[in-house]
Simulated assay, not measured.
Amino acid sequence: MSGSTIRTVTTGAASVADALADLPSGAEEEHRHGAGEALPPQSAQRGPATDCTADSAGGLTFDLRLAGTDAGAGGEDAGLLLRRRPDASGETEEVRLPLTPVQDAEPGTLRAALPSTVRLTEGRWNVFLVLAGREPRRLSPGVNDLRSLVDRVPHENRGWLGVRIPYATKHGNLSVRAWMRWPHAEAGALRMRDGALELDGRLYGGEVSATARLEAWPRRGPAEPVVADAAGAGGDRREFAAVLPFAALAGGRLWDLWLRPADGAEAVRVARILDDVPDKKRIFTYPAQPVARDAGQPAAAGPAATESAAVTAKPYYTLNNDLAVRIDRAE
C-alpha cells in the first residue's frame, strides 16, 4: 500500500461525476468501483482495539497493536479502511490510510493518520483493518482522546468545515461520524421560558446582517416557515440570537430550524457539531413545555380548551445533530 491516502467511490447510479467533483486533489488517488462491483467482504472476526486522537483542525490518528498471527501480516500493505455507509441512492465511498510503525512504542504498534485536509462526505464511516491476503475486519473502539474537539473554533480560511468524531456502535465496533458543512450555524445555549425557545449561536463562513432571521420549517407539507428575528445584539457580525414562540408552531408536528443570515441569502441549517458528542439526541434532552394559545386568539371552551392545554413543545437534536422542535398532543 502506498504512503498516500486512497479514495474509492462506489455508486449504484450511472454516473459518479457529482460525487467526485468535491473530492480533494493532490496526493490522493481516486478510484471507482463499477456500479455492480461488490465491496470487499468483511470477516466475522473483529480486529484489535484502536485508540483515536483528534486534533483541533479536524484530523484523526488511529493507533492499534497487532499481535499473534496478525503481527506477521503488518507489512507495507497494512492499512486502515474507512467505508461510508450507503446513502439513500446506494452510493458509498472508501478511504484507505496506510498503517506505519510507531517509534518508541510496543512492538506491533501501528498508526494511521486521517489529515484534516482530507474531506469525508457527511455520514457514518465504518473502520476496518486491512492486512495482506486477508479479508477486512471491523476494529474495536479503544481509548478516545477528543479533548481538542471541545469548544472547537474552525479555521475560516479553509472554505469548508470538516468534523469527525469516532464512536462505538451498538454492536461494539469502531465508526467515525463525519460532517461537511459550509457555512455552518452552530447552536449555542438553549433556554425555554415564557412559552418560547431562546436560542443564540455563531455563524461560520458568513456574517449575520440586521435582517437575519431564524426560520422554522415544517418537516412535512408545503407550509410556509415560522420566522423570528435573529440579528445579534452585540457588535459581532457572526453571532445570532432569536426568540421562537412555541404557540406559532402548534399547528405542526416537527419543525427544522434554519438561519437565514440576510435577505436573499441561502438558509443555513442550525446544528451543534463543534464538540466531542457524536449523537446528541440521547444526550442533550430538554423538558417538554406547555404551549399556550396565541394572545390574539379567543379562549376555547369545553373539550377544545382541554385539547389546547395538552399541547407541549420541546427542542431536540436530530440523528444528524441538527436542531429541531417537536410538538406533542396528549391523546
Rank of each mutant, 00 (worst) to 15 (best):
D87P: 12
V95G: 00
S56D: 11
F246G: 03
R152H: 04
R83I: 13
T10Y: 03
P303N: 11
A216Q: 05
D194H: 15
P278A: 12
E207P: 09
G79Y: 07
L214W: 05
D63G: 06
A267S: 14
D229R: 12
V118L: 08
D55K: 03
A288W: 09
S15W: 07
V268E: 00
L274G: 07
D236Y: 11
Y167C: 12
L197K: 06
E94C: 09
P245R: 09
S116Y: 05
R202P: 04
D145G: 12
A304Y: 11
V118G: 00
G201S: 10
A310E: 04
P278Q: 14
V150R: 10
G251V: 04
S140E: 14
D70Y: 01
A112R: 00
H31S: 13
W160C: 01
L82P: 00
G302K: 01
E91V: 06
S308R: 14
E29C: 10
R134G: 06
P41R: 09
F128R: 06
A168L: 03
R329Q: 15
D275F: 11
G302P: 05
K170Q: 15
D328G: 13
A78T: 01
Y167T: 10
D63E: 15
P225G: 07
V208F: 02
L254M: 07
A210I: 06
A189F: 12
P290Q: 14
A295F: 02
H33E: 10
A19N: 10
G232F: 11
V118K: 00
E215P: 11
L64N: 03
G205M: 01
A14R: 10
R158N: 04
A49G: 15
L319V: 11
A247T: 13
P107I: 08
D18V: 11
R329A: 15
M1F: 12
L174G: 02
L203I: 05
A112L: 07
D18M: 12
R177I: 02
L66S: 04
Q297F: 09
N126K: 08
Y317P: 12
R237V: 09
R238W: 00
A44D: 12
S15Q: 13
I273R: 04
L129V: 06
K280N: 10
A305Y: 09
L64R: 06
T69P: 01
L97S: 00
A304F: 14
L146Q: 04
P183W: 03
A295C: 05
V268Y: 00
A113P: 02
P225V: 05
G162K: 05
D87Q: 13
G34R: 14
E30M: 11
R111Q: 05
A242I: 02
N320I: 00
V163K: 01
S4V: 07
A250N: 13
I327S: 04
P40I: 02
W217L: 05
G74W: 04
